[in-house]
Design a protein around this nucleic acid. Structure first.
Lengths: 307, 307
DNA sequence: GTCACGTCTGAAAGATATTTTCGGACCGGT
DNA sequence: ACCGGTCCGAAAATATCTTTCAGACGTGAC
């Protein structure tokens, strides 16, 4: 009786995860000719078969629906529907398996989809590197200094200038007095007015951007607490920094300037500083955040959504 | 009309592989109450839901079959059957290897090391979601428009304003005429001067920031090509956008405002635009990049390194 | 407060897909 | 060639998915 075979395998084989190809090989001898056709098709192209209905697969293999269902049963599934589900899972796994192939550089003729994948991958890598390389001791000290500071000034030019503004914006939102400067002259004149307990932060990837080092030096000499966010811990800027936060440096290429990954890295550091300060000053930070949110509500259409 | 929304999303969303959780978050605001129930169930337990029939899922969520199908459609699938297949794939992926989520929220008393880890993880997640959810067709079209544009204007306020500046800075470095505007009045007066073939880009997470929509509308009416970078594809800003680039929306908490992950997401999109344009205009972009690098060299100390 | 309007929702009808049934085709042994 | 058995596929039966439609609900206007 056919039933014997069915029952034996149904008992021995639960829904079956990914070992489908193996099972097909194992069971092939006990299959009839048409069933082998179906099993072969399924093992050969899981993704493609997952997209087919019973009828479709039957036609593809030149058999009938009944045979397809019988094959599914033999492979240990209650019916074709479940085989199909397993197939979809298998396909997804295979797909994600060959993801790490994106480590290559971005080329001039890469299709746009590759560009997206590579950029995303690189930035993820940068984040992981930065998090791993960040000195939590230095970070903690920096946060403590910020939380206690009456006033904070952030210096950065070009891409780092945007990061500086980002930090200042965030700190302002939790009621901290903070400003960003990208004009070197104004930055220096501003630094002169700093006093002990105030905090000055310099953001520079290379660590040797004179326009940013200069105001930090002035702040340092005025007795303010100074923090450097840089990718080169031993670079000139660190001379004048009480605390040094290191950002990571990713590979760069012609189409992917250094500014890109250093920015990602810097932003993570800046976010950590922000959250740290928000934690330490939670009682004032939380209401301030809520208030700033409220205040901006009317700037958006009454119904933010699209319904 | 409900149909409009449906069609927009159906067009913008291909079968979608693993970015389901992200898509649920992105589209949740545009969903009705019962649809949200379904979406939540699906995002919460892909494996479990994959095992259910339409009727089963309808009962589980206390809704009707019709609603389940509607939700599947909104998420970009032709029907429930396909959603179920995708769910099975997702479940398989989660199962194999990749740890699902350290998704714990950041708490007030988290030690600083945890803050770093959680922020880094969240931002990585945001990047992955954004990359998965980005419509390469729209992106390609946007790149083509940019590459051919005599002039590009970027509008964004607050955190998005920094992203706008980032994009403008980058484009300028490869010899593209681009400017960022965060002053709404100046932005509008600027938009008025745009002409066909010029490109205007609006960056707004909510998609309903009036100060950014207004200049885009003006640009749109002047015949310029308009691009919206937003987390809400169906929001008001998309009315005036020729191309819509969707950023992902991450969970947010009190200590982790939405601005943080939306910024990460927006920056990835902006980087993709930049690299895309650089590819298309390689002959002029490459020398321009090299030249800008040269020009800045003297601004750094003679020996940039750290020894 | 009441009414009109548009949206959301689920029940049931309608369409597809899957499973089962059943009779014929094929194969090897006698 | 005949017989017993297995294998196979067409079509019926069932389950599942999709669409339609009318009532329920909330919202804004008067």
């Amino acid at each position: 009786m056919t039933n014997d075979v069915k029952e034996i395998f149904a008992g021995a084989a639960p829904p079956a995860p990914a070992a489908l190809a193996a099972k097909v090989r194992t069971l092939a001898p006990s299959m009839t000719r048409s069933m082998q056709l179906v099993a072969e098709a399924v093992a050969g192209d899981p993704a493609g078969c997952a997209a087919l209905t019973v009828t479709g697969l039957a036609e593809l293999t030149g058999t009938s629906e009944a045979t397809v269902v019988r094959t599914a049963r033999l492979l240990g599934y209650p019916g074709y529907r479940d085989l199909r589900l397993a197939l979809a899972g298998l396909a997804a796994q295979q797909q994600s398996g060959r993801a790490p192939a994106v480590t290559a550089d971005i080329a001039v003729d890469d299709p746009i989809a590759d560009v997206v994948a590579k950029l995303a991958y690189d930035e993820q890598q940068t984040l992981a590197d930065t998090a791993a390389g960040l000195d939590t001791g230095q970070l903690g000290a920096a946060v403590a200094a910020l939380a206690a500071a009456p006033r904070t000034e952030v210096y950065g030019v070009a891409a780092s200038g945007l990061v500086a503004q980002d930090l200042a914006q965030k700190l302002l939102r939790i009621g901290h007095i903070a400003h960003a400067h990208s004009d070197p002259h104004l930055a220096v004149t501003n630094a002169v007015t700093l006093r002990p307990k105030d905090v000055a932060i310099a953001i520079t990837h290379s660590g040797s951007t004179g326009d940013v080092i200069e105001p930090l030096r002035v702040a340092f000499e005025r007795g303010a607490t100074t923090i450097a966010i840089t990718g080169r811990p031993g670079s000139p800027v660190s001379q004048y920094a009480d605390h040094i936060l290191t950002t990571s440096t990713a590979r760069e290429s012609e189409l992917r300037p250094a500014a890109m990954s250093s920015r990602t890295s810097q932003l993570l550091v800046v976010d950590c500083l922000f959250v740290g300060v928000a934690q330490r000053t939670y009682d004032t930070a939380a209401p301030a955040l809520a208030a700033s949110y409220e205040a901006l509500a009317h700037r958006h259409s009454p119904r933010g959504g699209n319904r």
